[in-house]
């Protein structure tokens, strides 16, 4: 699916755009009935990549995600710190993601992987039951990608949080996630368990590509391999 459609989907979920048709419900409540802050306590969002120009420190950036709880205020603006619970949530998120040493470092001076961890920490500090991640590892090198994937696995293991991830990494998606929705040109093609998704015919339907499926040598899970015949 083209990136524009994916970001439209995310913008709908964040309440930034109204869907042309259909409606969105969150925990049984229509999205349009939720206020901006109510929605921010239901869903948090990790963008594909934080822009390099952002010069906030990790701590500043993470505490900003307490906005929906009235947090992130401070003495300089003439307000009192009102969000004691927020400090705790922030510290917990920092510990879980292991970004404590980056606390006072500007985001603009971090590596892509570090920035992504801080971004995830900020979303966790928002204390929502659902976390949406847009291609969380697509721009990272393989090592950083593994670190982010492990972190996300740890989050689902240790926290009671559902992850909704938009990804093109089929092997990762099928290995880590319970439910996969395959989309093509804005239409849902399949909505199924990970195992059922990794079928030659399903992949053919969505991607028009004839890939090989091969079991992983250790886990035995099917992995997508490019067909040698398609290589130039």
């Amino acid at each position: 699916m083209p990136p524009a459609l994916l970001s439209a989907l995310i913008r709908c979920l964040l309440g930034l755009t109204q869907p042309d048709s259909g409606h969105i419900e969150i925990n049984g409540r229509p999205l349009s009935k939720l206020s901006h802050t109510e929605l921010a306590r239901q869903i948090s969002y990790v963008p594909q990549q934080l822009a390099e120009r952002i010069s906030f420190t990790a701590m500043e950036f993470i505490s900003m995600s307490r906005y929906a709880y009235g947090g992130g205020r401070g003495a300089g603006g003439g307000f009192k710190q009102t969000d004691e619970e927020g400090l705790e949530a922030t510290e917990q998120a920092i510990e879980l993601t292991g970004v404590g040493h980056l606390r006072h470092q500007a985001l603009s001076t971090m590596s892509g992987g570090e920035r992504q961890k801080v971004s995830i920490a900020a979303a966790l500090a928002q204390q929502t039951p659902t976390l949406i991640l847009d291609e969380p590892s697509a721009h990272l090198d393989p090592k950083q990608r593994d670190i982010i994937h492990d972190l996300l696995a740890k989050i689902t293991r240790e926290q009671n949080i559902s992850l909704i991830v938009i990804t093109h990494d089929l092997n990762w998606a099928s290995a880590e996630f319970d439910r996969i929705i395959g989309m093509k040109a804005g239409q849902t093609m399949v909505d199924t368990q990970a195992d059922a998704f990794m079928q030659k015919q399903t992949l053919m339907d969505i991607f028009d590509a004839d890939w090989l499926l091969h079991p992983h040598p250790e886990s035995g899970r099917p992995m997508v391999l490019p067909s040698p015949s398609q290589k130039p």
Binding site: I10, L16, H36, Y45, Y67, G77, Q126
Partner: peptide, 25 residues
């Protein structure tokens, strides 16, 4: 402007980011 300094922080990142944190962009 002083009352909106938190909104300004988030809006300076991206609109999507500000909205996802609960700002009425």
């Amino acid at each position: 402007v002083s009352l909106l300094h938190r909104e300004l922080n988030l809006l300076s990142i991206t609109d999507d980011m500000a909205a996802s944190r609960g700002v009425n962009v």
